[in-house]
Design a protein around this nucleic acid. Structure first.
Lengths: 201, 201
DNA sequence: TTGGAGGGATAGAAATACTGAGTCTCTGAA
DNA sequence: TTCAGAGACTCAGTATTTCTATCCCTCCAA
């Protein structure tokens, strides 16, 4: 008997923006522009008749209402994700396209990640590239490269066991959208990288 | 850290369709055509990689997955509604346009529902009509009339205290979209109608 | 055998969401 | 005090999504 819910996509924009306290980062997580987030959040606020954010020059703050709303909305999305993964195994296994910079490829075993059974479920393809922009354009889901330059709002994860040594003068890094840093796919790939770099050093 | 949720509006179509086990009735509840529901549900099934309904010539059945999914999704929407109403009082008070058939108007106090303080928050306007179609076209939210003809998939509620008597040869009925039968607005109007017809008989 | 109910498909229309560019304000560094 | 950088807002135009309107099919009951 649900009736007159707020716009669901606008809720998603709100949830991400409130989590980051930044429209720009929310935009990056959801793969749209900040203007789109701004518009969606405004639309939500108008439809609710309540301000959710205080826009300060220094950035965003949640209003009391936003503060109350955020955890509940986050929970709703979590419940939704859980329910969905329970019935739709396919959603778990969206396969990643991996970008590998050529210097990182030198360190990794030949043809990695092919023939890695444990990754088969998580990896669709891999290409050689060093272009971080391809993450933003969704051509690749993550990029493995040497060294951790500044990637703006992208998530940057250092491969734990790949500390700089004589043999490996720079550290392996894993770059992806912030929203993807914690997902199964990333975890599996990172785990596999960790094993490899350990056994190599 | 939510990632790759199913399309939220498609979930809404699924939830309504699963509750009614009918695309047509779900469409009526959500104020769209059955084709739109059909498309949304199909899109959801494709994106999940799982069939949610079995389409039989006799109508719909839920698959095992759909059966599992429905209560969880319903709960999600309930939680969402609750969270939203808590911070956005405005959402509670979408005002109804009431249609009143002229025979029903004879029974009701003059100018009802005007001057009814308890309804002020729930009623925008009332007009005289006996045209059920206006509910489907959203020109009115509910219709109060004598006698309970067949209204297809619309909800039909008999006003409890208006049993047929010499003075009132037919019973007052309240007609609205199924999704609106349980909402605050309907409850308030029905409550007021009950009091009136009691005091009149 | 016919008509009605209900779901499926599809093309085109309508509504929604997104982008891109320009603007404003504030901050912190030079 | 000036300037560059961040971050958000607005608006026009465009892209995408969603809905409608039809026509189709199947089943069932009269």
């Amino acid at each position: 008997m649900t009736y007159r819910l707020p716009a669901l996509n606008a809720l998603r924009a709100f949830e991400a923006a409130a989590r980051h306290l930044s429209f720009r980062m929310a935009a990056s997580e959801l793969g749209v522009t900040a203007g789109a987030i701004s518009q969606q959040v405004k639309k939500l606020e108008v439809s609710l008749g309540v301000a959710l954010f205080r826009r300060l020059p220094q950035g965003l703050l949640l209003t009391t209402e936003g503060e109350t709303y955020l955890p509940q909305i986050s929970k709703v999305f979590e419940d939704l994700t859980e329910a969905t993964e329970a019935i739709a195994p396919k959603m778990n296994s969206k396969k990643f396209n991996i970008g590998i910079c050529s210097k990182a490829a030198d360190i990794l075993p030949p043809h990695w990640p092919k023939h890695r059974g444990s990754l088969k479920a998580f990896v669709r393809d891999s290409i050689y590239t060093n272009d971080v922009e391809m993450i933003r354009t969704n051509e690749i889901d993550c990029l493995i490269r040497l060294g951790g330059g500044p990637y703006g709002d992208l998530a940057l994860i250092k491969i734990p066991s790949s500390a700089s040594t004589k043999k490996h003068p720079a550290e392996l890094h894993y770059v992806c959208k912030p929203g993807l840093a914690d997902c199964r796919q990333s975890k599996a790939i990172l785990e596999d990288l960790k094993i490899h770099t350990l056994s190599n050093s």
